[in-house]
Design a protein around this nucleic acid. Sequence first.
RNA 1: GCCCCCAUCGUUCAGUGGCCUAGGACACCUGCCUUUCACGCAGGCAACACGGGUUCGAAUCCCGUUGGGGGUGCCA
Length: 472
Amino acid sequence: MTLAEPTSDVRVRFSPAPTGYLHVGSARSALFNWMYAARTEGTMILRVEDTDADRSQDELVQAIRDSLGWLGIDWHEEYRQSDRFDLYRAAAQDFVDRGLAYYCDCSQEDVKARIEAKGESGGYDSFCRDRGLGPAENTVVRFRTPTEGTTSYDDLIRGTVSFENDTLEDFVIVRSSGVPLFHVANAYDDLDMGITHVVRGEDLVNTVPRVLLLRQAMLGSSVFADREGLAEAPVFAHLPLIVNEQRKKLSKRRDDVSVGEFADRGFLPEAMRNYLLTLGWGPRDEGDEIRPIDELVPQFDLADINKAPAFFDIKKLEHFNGEYIRALPLDDFLTRVAPFVAEIDSGLFERMAPFVQGRLKRLDEAPSFLDWVVGDPREPEEKDWRKTMTKEKDRVPEVLDLVIERLADCPWEPEALEKAVFGVGEELGTKTQLPVRMALSGSRSGIPLFEPMVELDRDVVLDRLRAARAKV
RNA sequence: GCCCCCAUCGUUCAGUGGCCUAGGACACCUGCCUUUCACGCAGGCAACACGGGUUCGAAUCCCGUUGGGGGUGCCA
């Protein structure tokens, strides 16, 4: 499903920084925003927060858009913060004019040295607060934070969260390069774009007091003076983090979790999206968790989201994926799996597809089921070989001999092959499939035996059987 | 160090004072089905971190302890 034309006042935004590919954590933030927009028929906004020119890359913006699209996450409006620097700069200038912000020329080393000399901890020490500096080289603009009182807000997921203002430092809002920083841009845009709900990762909670202070200050500026209905701050909902097995926040560097890679590994977007949704949230009706998105949207609510971090369990994702793969109509399956089986003759694959489909957890596993049909049998595991071929060693040679004999002139079609192979078993009073399967494929498991078998030439089959016979 | 947050089976979701001898799903184990595997079906294992309160009654409310995480940038 895609988002409908908005009919409510709800406005949410997903605001990624294009400093890497979309990873599962941000994808989940995007998804929860999207779910809320879908449920409330609100407006979904994609806002690219590329204020850090050094780390932002243009091509990543498109990559992120692609990954969102792959997941079926769409949006109504799109903005780039780099297009809006003048707006943020003006807001910062306005703060300076009104005495809410000031210039500071301290280097990071200076600050650090002073703090250490005083034996204190923390970041900036408000050194330039009252020095009355003007704009100059290597000078930043800092926001003057209150020294007393508390800033608190109600989080839809966490309840009331409050911060003592004196723990807030005078943070930088404009770099010495003149480019505004995240906090101003974020506060300005949320205000300007009329964002009603801020849904994002828990790692952003402690930016809330800063953003709120900035918002309040902006409300006092002439830019927003005449705007109606802005006074109310957005509702915040901070999503629990998604963590790895060490219970640490998923990180791109060590955890290998970009959405694009999941696509490459043969995960279905519907499965991915469905799984992501169950991390920190469950359907209200306590029904099955694997369900089409449009059944889930109506019961979605931000207030129902869990507080505790959730482990990203690839095994469970694979289970979801397997279910979705099995549910695919055959021709749909064929289309989706095509990129993963490009090496295999398409006629052959299409004939084998019904047997492969039900056994996959990921689409990229498809070729492994046909390797022995397309090429040589795999080198059997020592343990498996022994178990299959020598455990009942008096029978296997007989079985193989007789199978070779029967197959020499039997009609080359599945039913006939099955009859021949099983017939040997009946004659000898033993099972025959496993030794034959092992001889042909090098494995004890796989797709049904006789259909792929006819895809091989009779000589090839007989050669493999003889080779196995020689080994037992 | 300082600030903020979190705490139910191995994992995940449910449970918002009595329906809980705590439920579902994944994983794992055992059967059944099947001359392979997978699917399916039937079972099994397995948790309210600890200590104090409040209450007739606490997984659910309060306090503390412990443990874990996030933040602490001229990143977002």
